[in-house]
Simulated assay, not measured.
Amino acid sequence: MHHRIITGVMMACAALAAHAQQDTTPPLNAQLQKQEIAHGDPARWSRPDRTQQERERTLRKEIGAALAEARQACKQVPATERGACLKDAQHTYQADMAKVPQLLAGQ
């Protein structure tokens, strides 16, 4: 059940990231991403994480990527709001990282 929730949350995050990407991804990165997509998914993406350590590494990597995307999005807000945006992004990152053991225990 928790796996389905996590999968759903990750899919929602991916959809939001794709929407936000339109405004926050540098043009060169967007072009490289399109080229990668044209080649199809790497084989490693279809292999599930088998060990607890692999699942933890993937989860931490995804949380870090979400922080990077949030920071990039913060660059798009007015300068007067940027500090609060970055602070909120960092707080979310710390909260998500603190939940890693709970999320892994629920799998």
Rank of each mutant, 00 (worst) to 15 (best):
residue 6 I to G: 07
residue 10 M to L: 13
residue 12 A to D: 12
residue 13 C to V: 07
residue 14 A to R: 00
residue 19 H to M: 09
residue 19 H to F: 05
residue 20 A to G: 11
residue 22 Q to N: 09
residue 27 P to E: 00
residue 28 L to I: 04
residue 29 N to L: 08
residue 30 A to V: 07
residue 32 L to E: 15
residue 34 K to S: 06
residue 35 Q to T: 08
residue 36 E to P: 02
residue 36 E to G: 12
residue 37 I to Y: 02
residue 41 D to A: 00
residue 41 D to Q: 06
residue 42 P to K: 05
residue 43 A to N: 00
residue 46 S to P: 01
residue 48 P to F: 05
residue 49 D to Q: 09
residue 50 R to L: 10
residue 51 T to W: 05
residue 54 E to H: 04
residue 57 R to S: 10
residue 57 R to L: 08
residue 58 T to M: 13
residue 59 L to Y: 01
residue 59 L to D: 01
residue 61 K to L: 10
residue 61 K to M: 11
residue 63 I to E: 00
residue 64 G to W: 04
residue 66 A to H: 02
residue 67 L to Q: 09
residue 67 L to I: 03
residue 69 E to R: 00
residue 70 A to C: 14
residue 73 A to C: 04
residue 73 A to H: 03
residue 76 Q to M: 13
residue 78 P to K: 09
residue 80 T to A: 14
residue 83 G to L: 07
residue 83 G to Q: 10
residue 83 G to R: 04
residue 84 A to I: 02
residue 85 C to S: 11
residue 85 C to Y: 10
residue 85 C to V: 11
residue 85 C to W: 05
residue 86 L to G: 06
residue 88 D to S: 12
residue 90 Q to F: 08
residue 90 Q to Y: 04
residue 90 Q to R: 15
residue 91 H to D: 04
residue 91 H to W: 02
residue 92 T to P: 01
residue 98 A to K: 06
residue 101 P to M: 12
residue 102 Q to C: 02
residue 102 Q to L: 14
residue 102 Q to E: 06
residue 104 L to P: 08
residue 105 A to C: 03
